[in-house]
Design a binder for these strands. Structure first.
Length: 910
RNA sequence: AGGCCCGUAGCUCAGUUGGUUAGAGCGCUACGUUGACAUCGUAGAGGUCAGCGGUUCGAGUCCGCUCGGGCCUACCA
């Protein structure tokens, strides 16, 4: 191996006092890339380390990474780095999505700005143009991910329109078609007049709209009146209610509920459509709500999904009154032809009013489906499209979550999952766009349709070369739905990657695309592989601003991850996002908090700087055993025990994808145990004032382990610092250290370092230190003022432990003397850490403020004593509460009484 | 209309199967700088856990209702 040397300075070199992430983040990103550290070998026979795989939710190729991507990428990278350090063959497979509508719109807009258009270029040239854009933007996404420290295997980068993926798409299409699950038909679909394409139900979002409910009077034909076009004036009128009067031009019937007594007599009769004079059948249909409006519904089979169903049930004709461009057709009559549908609405109302057919109108709030991409109301439209019947696959997907083969995190999504899949409807998979996977279907001159992998096959099937290819492309989500199998090599069942990594392990994505994407992947992957595509789905919340508001460009509260990288460093962003990821909650990104985690980086930087400067000559011990062999004193055993507990907590939290807990444990340990206490305890030992065995090695060991624990969350900082740690020369003892911290072992918390007794003792020492400091502060004693501590009572072992650790108390609390036994009467007494403490101080008398505080504490303690006594004298509690709880209460009561006695004694002193 | 989630310190949020004293970060107050870090340290203040009722020896935690906020799905022409 001729690895490039790590770009960091040699161990022991002086560190800049200034903590500046920009000075090293880019350097390490480049080095990781050069070293090709994250390339994963396929291992189809399963001979090497356990496989682990995460597939990136492919960002839109023309997009720019936003905070949601930053969040998800951070978590994916965190898991990948963690599994890699645990020894797995951990693959994070990157890629991008061609994003049909979004990308096409973007390029069209661009052309428009240049006075050109898609139609002017023509299909072929336009698609070529989009490919150019794609090439330009793909590099952007990659660069942005790298700036966040992503450890993807870039050699496996995929794009949803790659040859391999295109083959997967065609194979899936042909196969589903052969199974009868994909079919072409003319059905009611959501049509976007702006995009001029059909969109699926999921691409329609309903918005509350304040509209008008118009009441229209349709003349009823006289009974027995048979001939078409007969007059109907002077007779009865039927009043129907509608929010879309323009659709009346496409009416072919009026419906009422079959049980509606008011209208049953109308069976078999006809009404006359105002303006156009069309004859309308009267039909009885269950769908009509007799309570709403007049209980009569105008029926427009071609422009309303419910009316379409009514039309089918009653074999009604349909009239296409609105065209694909959202304008009225010739069928709508010469007065309206060519008008935009909303203009037509105004004109129709005017006209009806003039004809006396408008009998009322009222404001009416209702929800209207809008095209998610283009924003305008969708037009329900009868249109020939390709559909996928996914009901069978949906059942399987439902079962996978129900029986636990797939775990959704948080599980509160289970019900939503179930509800959607149980009520799934056919999926419109064709789009009238140019950018995407073209549907592999060809038509012969007789209109016969031939679905095949390619033109040659289709020609063979058709027996003619005179074929025209279907112009439509597939819904983008059809190809993303195949992502778990297509990226790994399917349809080649023997593909090495597929055999190595399928099924993948965890999917980390936003909950907003659970149906668009997650459900489709589960359905399609299970269908073609007979196995779930991933075992766990970690659904993240939405990234919000610090006030919990949704980020949006119009509100101007968006954050750009790359700008944040410049200001705070990638590691601070990663840590912030990871610590805020609590299952089931949104992620309120607070920049002050991010600044706090940048400060955490500074803390780590300086702790290492301190350690390197003060442990000259020492090296990181090769193992915990070696270190323990050195007859360590209490502070060393304590910090190692705490390190062990932290490692176990972090690893456990990561197993459950509780990134917040993992990060909080690390933060607390590094800052509040290692820095606040251990380093302070180590100072006198390192300076030789109170030497202890192997303090330097212990500190280096704790730092080395901490950096490894922190690495998945903060890869740059930890690499930078870890490379500086002094180690044995290669060959001197055991294996050489890996090239990069990202290849080092992850501490698991099973190193035999736990020392519960030492922890109990140290807890008492810490409590005594805090009591001393508190007293000093309370009485305004200068740091230099002498202070002695008498440990008057407590568990014998703990008392002895604290007395033995007198040098620590001296070093961090200025306590000159620590002894067991009764202190002077005038000492200040406290009960802390299970010990009765008496501090002898040369102090002015207690201040009024201190007296007041003590009195307040005393009241609180007395209330608590009363509570504990109450519980302990309650027979129900004694009988039913578990013994350890009762015991805990007894101990607590005793403790409180000791504490109260100490306080009363202190209050009694002058 | 149905389903889901949330309401805890000034702010943003933790709080594992109900169990003794409800935590963190930021902010706030006071004090502190002869070399790890002022991107710091020490000591503090601050909460009737939205409200009401219930289950229980015991409820922030479980159940019901009310109020407030958010999300998802479906839909009323």
């Amino acid at each position: 191996m001729n690895a490039l040397p790590a770009p960091a300075p040699a161990a022991g070199a002086g560190m800049d006092k200034r903590f500046d992430p920009a000075s090293y983040e880019g350097k390490w990103q480049a080095w990781w890339d050069e070293q090709d550290l994250y390339h994963c070998p396929a291992d189809p026979e399963g001979e090497g380390p356990a496989p682990y795989c995460i597939l990136i939710p492919p960002p839109n190729v023309t997009g720019k990474l936003h905070m949601g991507h930053a969040l998800q990428s951070t978590l994916q990278d965190l898991v990948t780095r963690w599994r890699r350090m645990r020894g797995d063959n951990a693959l994070w497979l990157p890629g991008t999505d061609h994003a049909g509508i979004a990308t096409q719109l973007m390029v069209e807009r661009h052309l428009e700005e240049r006075g050109s258009s898609r139609l002017e270029l023509g299909r072929e040239k336009f698609v070529e143009r989009v490919w150019e854009w794609k090439r330009e933007y793909r590099a952007n996404i990659r660069g942005q991910l790298q700036r966040l420290g992503a450890s993807c295997d870039w050699s496996r980068e995929r794009f949803t329109l790659d040859d391999g993926l295109a083959r997967a798409v065609r194979t899936a299409f042909v196969s589903l078609h052969r199974e009868g699950l994909i079919y072409r038909g003319e059905h009611m679909v959501n049509w976007s007049p702006v995009l001029r394409t059909a969109v699926s139900d999921l691409e329609v979002e309903s918005r509350e709209v304040e509209g008008t409910l118009y009441r229209l009077a349709y003349p009823l034909e006289r009974e027995g009146e048979e001939e078409e076009g007969g007059a109907a004036d002077g007779g009865e009128e039927l009043v129907v209610a509608t929010t879309r009067p323009e659709t009346m031009l496409g009416d072919t019937a009026v419906a009422y509920h079959p049980d509606d007594e008011r209208y049953r007599r109308l069976a078999g009769r006809f009404a006359r459509l105002p303006i156009l004079g069309r004859r309308l059948r009267l039909v009885a249909d269950e769908h009509v709500d007799p309570e709403f409006g007049t209980g009569l519904v105008k029926v427009t089979p071609f422009h309303d999904p419910n009316d379409y169903e009514i039309g089918r049930r009653h074999d009604l004709p349909g009239v296409r009154a609105i065209g694909l461009d959202g304008r009225m057709t010739a069928e709508a009559g010469p007065d309206f032809e060519g008008l935009d549908r909303f203009e037509a609405r105004r004109r129709v109302v005017e006209r009806l009013e003039a004809e006396g057919r408008l009998v009322g109108s009222e404001r009416h709030v209702h929800s209207v489906g809008h095209s998610q991409r283009s924003g305008e109301p969708v037009e329900p439209m009868l249109s020939p499209q390709w559909f996928a019947d996914v009901s069978g696959m949906a059942k399987e997907a439902l079962a996978a979550v129900e029986d636990g083969r797939i775990e959704l995190i948080p599980s509160s999504w289970n019900k939503t999952w179930e509800h959607w899949l149980a009520n799934i409807r056919p999926w419109v998979i064709s789009r009238q766009l140019w950018w995407g996977h073209r549907i592999p279907a060809w038509y012969d001159p007789d209109g016969g349709c031939h679905v095949a992998m390619n033109r040659e096959q289709a020609e063979r099937l058709a027996g003619t070369a005179e074929l025209t290819r279907d112009p439509d492309v597939l819904d983008t989500w059809f190809s993303s739905g195949l992502w778990p199998i297509s990226t790994l090599g399917w349809p080649d069942e023997e593909a090495a990657d597929l055999r190595t990594w399928y099924p993948t392990d965890v999917l980390i994505t936003g909950s907003d695309i659970i149906f668009f994407w997650v459900a489709r992947m589960v359905m399609l992957s299970q269908h073609f592989r007979g196995e779930v595509p991933f075992r766990t789905v970690h659904l993240t919340g939405l990234v919000r601003d610090a006030d919990g508001e949704k980020m949006s460009k119009t509100k101007g509260n968006t954050l750009d991850p790359l700008e944040l990288v410049e200001e705070y460093g990638a590691d601070a962003i990663r840590f912030t996002l990871a610590v805020l990821d609590v299952p089931g909650r949104n992620i309120p990104v607070d920049l002050e908090r991010m600044a706090g985690y940048r400060a955490f980086g500074n803390k780590i930087w300086n702790a290492v700087r301190f350690a390197l400067a003060r442990t000259e000559g020492a090296i990181v011990p090769a193992s915990a055993e070696e270190l323990l062999g050195g007859d360590l004193a209490a502070p060393e055993r304590w910090i190692l025990s705490r390190l062990e507990a932290t490692a176990a907590a972090v690893d456990g939290a990561l197993e459950e994808f509780r990134f917040d807990r993992a990060c909080n444990s690390l933060y607390r340990f590094f800052w509040h145990e290692l820095c606040d206490w251990y380093i302070e305890f180590a100072k006198p030992a390192l300076s030789g004032r109170a030497a202890r065995p192997r303090t330097a090695e212990t500190l280096l060991f704790a730092i080395d382990s901490s950096l490894r624990l922190l690495h998945p969350a903060m890869p740059h900082l930890t690499e930078e610092l870890w490379q500086r740690l002094p180690r044995a020369e290669a060959g001197e003892s055991g294996e050489p250290a890996p090239r990069s911290i990202s290849l080092a072992d992850y501490p698991l918390g099973d190193g035999g370092l736990a020392a519960p007794d030492v922890e109990r003792g140290m807890d008492a020492v810490v409590a005594a230190v805090q009591a001393a400091r508190s007293l000093r502060r309370e009485r305004n004693l200068p740091a230099a003022a002498g202070m002695s501590l008498f440990v008057e009572d407590g568990e014998a072992e703990i008392v002895a432990f604290v007395v033995e650790q007198a040098p620590l108390l001296a070093a961090v609390a200025g306590v000159g003397k620590v002894a067991a036994g009764r202190g002077p009467d005038e000492a200040v007494r406290d009960r802390s850490g299970g010990l009765n403490l008496a501090f002898e101080v040369e102090a002015p008398a207690m201040s009024e403020a201190e007296k007041a505080r003590l009195a307040k504490d005393l009241r609180k303690i007395e209330a608590e004593i009363a509570g504990a006594r109450g519980r302990l004298s309650n027979p129900g509690f004694l009988e039913k509460a578990p013994p350890h709880v009762v015991e805990g209460n007894r101990a607590r009561l005793a403790e409180l009484e000791e504490r109260r006695a100490a306080m009363i004694e202190t209050l009694g002193n002058p």
